[in-house]
């Protein structure tokens, strides 16, 4: 099929879709600033000037003391203590009229797993939400109940060879995926195993190896996808595979390859499968030169030997 023919075929699509797209979005961006932005900026200016005055006072007070900071933690940077998990707050939030608050509270209550009394209270309060007419809330409640009751039947849970379990919370809260934090239950204790940072804003998939010793974790932003293999028991993680494939293939094919400062790769992976207990295989669409060049390739990666092969797809 030629591209012009595909363009014509697209022309035959459903009239309702065409009409809906015709009136979608805003025709033009409104010019000028809206009042709410002016008010927000004014509040920020007031807040920052007050904060500066307070900080300056503190500084002069402690001028004579010699500060020594060994490591800058997030709470140090905010001049505030780290917020502690407050399960009671989330139990209270279940009564809210705001469905978003309820949804967040349901998911956050899972973090109270290690406190038996909170776990029992949460299980009791969550039961009615499993039948909620909002499917997102119902799914979240069903999952939270499954974890807190230690049933572990949900397909969202990855069960590993060492007996531990991996899962995410806020499952599929976005079209792009789930929250970018991995939780693990080992020996009946819950811990935050790891979290991803931008641009890996969402976890889309977790694929365990056949022997359940490794797990491939697929994350994404709204522009790019990323794949890593984790040996949870040994605490080892592979390099990110899509960018690695992009760089390797780019070098082999002498394509001008750059890594963006925001680490977006504009590339993606599909048909991700384990060939054996140690080798992951996927089809990659690798983008180069601001997506002017797209290379469709097959990628295989052996975790133990760290060997990667990238070949052009026919």
């Amino acid at each position: 099929m030629k591209r012009e023919e595909l363009y014509r075929e697209i022309g035959l699509m459903d009239e309702d879709l065409i009409e809906a797209a015709g009136s979608s979005g805003a025709e033009k961006r409104k010019k000028g600033f809206s009042k709410k932005w002016v008010a927000l900026v004014a509040c920020l200016v007031l807040y920052s000037s007050t904060a500066s005055a307070l900080l300056a006072t503190e500084y002069y007070k402690n001028q004579n003391a010699e500060p020594y900071i060994r490591y800058l933690r997030a709470e140090d940077m905010e001049l505030l203590p780290a917020p502690k998990y407050d399960g009671m707050k989330f139990l209270q939030a279940l009564k809210s009229d705001n469905e978003e608050h309820v949804y967040v509270a349901i998911n956050r209550l899972v973090e109270g797993f290690n406190d038996p009394s909170l776990r029992a209270k949460a299980l009791n309060k969550l039961q009615p939400f499993a039948g909620n007419e909002n499917p997102k809330i119902a799914d979240a409640a069903a999952f939270a109940i499954d974890i807190l009751s230690q049933s572990y039947r949900s397909p969202y849970i990855v069960k590993l060879a060492d007996g531990s379990m991996l899962f995410t919370l806020f499952n599929h809260y976005s079209d792009y995926g789930s929250q970018n934090v991995l939780w693990r239950i080992k020996d009946n204790k819950l811990e935050e195993y790891s979290s991803f940072s931008a641009p890996s804003m969402y976890i889309t998939e977790m694929i365990p190896s056949p022997d359940k010793r490794l797990v491939a974790v697929v994350t994404c932003s709204n522009k790019s996808e990323f794949v890593q293999i984790i040996n949870v028991e040994a605490g080892r993680t592979s390099p990110e595979l899509i960018e690695s494939a992009r760089v390797k293939y780019g070098a082999e094919q002498e394509i001008d390859t750059w890594i963006r400062p925001d680490y977006e790769n504009y590339s993606d992976a599909s048909n991700i499968v384990w060939k054996d207990n140690d080798t992951l295989e996927f089809e990659g669409s690798l983008a180069y030169q601001d997506t002017e060049i797209i290379e469709n390739v097959s990628v295989t990666y052996q975790f133990s030997s760290k060997v990667m092969e990238v070949t052009k797809l026919n």
């Binding site: 363009y7 697209i10 022309g11 699509m13 459903d14 879709l17 065409i18 809906a20 797209a21 979608s24 979005g25 079209d175």
Partner: peptide
């Protein structure tokens, strides 16, 4: 098109229709 998210669908149609 019916199976994808609305915004992506509208952007696709505006571009290619």
């Amino acid at each position: 098109l019916y199976g994808i998210e609305e915004q992506a669908r509208n952007i696709f149609i505006r571009r290619y229709w």
